[in-house]
């Protein structure tokens, strides 16, 4: 679904991505992991076209990215922190996005109901709490029923109830055949969700493959320990 060829990105003198060759499979839940500053967010942002690679190629669903934007119809993105124009109401923000993506009319509004966001509809964004904004953020990612979901730290800032609602939603979407890419620092979450793991270290791929494969390679009991070991610098 998403494929990179020698993807390379340099900020000034800092090499953020060093010639990545990654393939993210369709209909799988892929988890991107790595210590802070390993290039996770930069990688996600290159997929979204927010960051332009210095060299190398990136394909989303067979489409090569170079200044194109229509491919993003296929992607739902939930950023780590979201902000919206503060004087618009929740309803207006949703309408704005619906109008921008007017080709897409199959709305998935399940999360609005589950996260009880209807009662906030008329509120201005500036009067929302951080957690409510994050809920809105989640709703937007799923709203257009896209085949690819990119979730950057989806449960950060959500209360436990909302967080588990979101987790269930992710699992349902996975079953429905979506390709899901996500990052998280909550290791227990991975145990439940992840199928494929991509471990980034200083801009290079350190491990890429199935969950069980990683556990086997590190010789640990579970994924949590295997990842922790990798972060501490264990070689595989």
């Amino acid at each position: 679904m998403i494929k990179t060829e020698k993807l390379y990105k340099k900020y000034g003198t800092l090499e953020a991505l060093k010639s990545l060759n990654i393939e993210i499979k369709s209909n799988r839940l892929t988890y991107i992991v790595g210590p802070n500053g390993s290039g996770k967010t930069t990688f996600i942002k290159t997929i979204l076209g927010l960051v332009k690679p210095t060299s190398g190629n990136l394909f989303v669903d067979g489409v090569k990215l170079n200044g194109t934007y229509l491919y993003r119809e296929k992607i739902g993105y939930m950023p780590q922190i979201a902000s919206f124009p503060e004087n618009l109401s929740v309803k207006e923000v949703l309408n704005l996005l619906k109008e921008i993506r007017s080709e897409n009319v199959n709305y998935d509004e399940e999360l609005i109901r589950l996260l009880k966001l209807e009662k906030e509809y008329e509120k201005r964004i500036k009067n929302l709490s951080g957690g409510t904004k994050q809920k809105l953020n989640a709703v937007i990612a799923f709203l257009f029923d896209p085949p690819v979901l990119i979730l950057d730290e989806p449960s950060a800032g959500l209360d436990p109830v909302s967080s588990s609602i979101l987790k269930d939603k992710i699992l349902r979407e996975k079953k429905a055949g979506k390709t899901i890419l996500f990052t998280s620092h909550i290791l227990s979450e991975l145990e439940e969700l992840a199928e494929e793991i991509i471990f980034l270290l200083e801009g290079s791929v350190c491990f890429s493959g199935g969950k069980d494969e990683l556990i086997l390679l590190t010789g640990e009991r579970n994924l949590e320990r295997a990842i922790a070991n990798l972060m501490m610098g264990q070689k595989i």
């Binding site: 979204l48 076209g49 927010l50 934007y69 229509l70 491919y71 993003r72 119809e73 992607i75 993105y77 950023p79 922190i81 979201a82 902000s83 919206f84 124009p85 996005l97 921008i100 993506r101 937007i140």
Partner: peptide, 16 residues
């Protein structure tokens, strides 16, 4: 002030 909002909109199918 709108830098996060810009990121949100740019992750939609829209020309910069």
């Amino acid at each position: 002030n709108n830098s996060d909002y810009i990121i949100l909109i740019l992750s939609q199918p829209i020309n910069r």
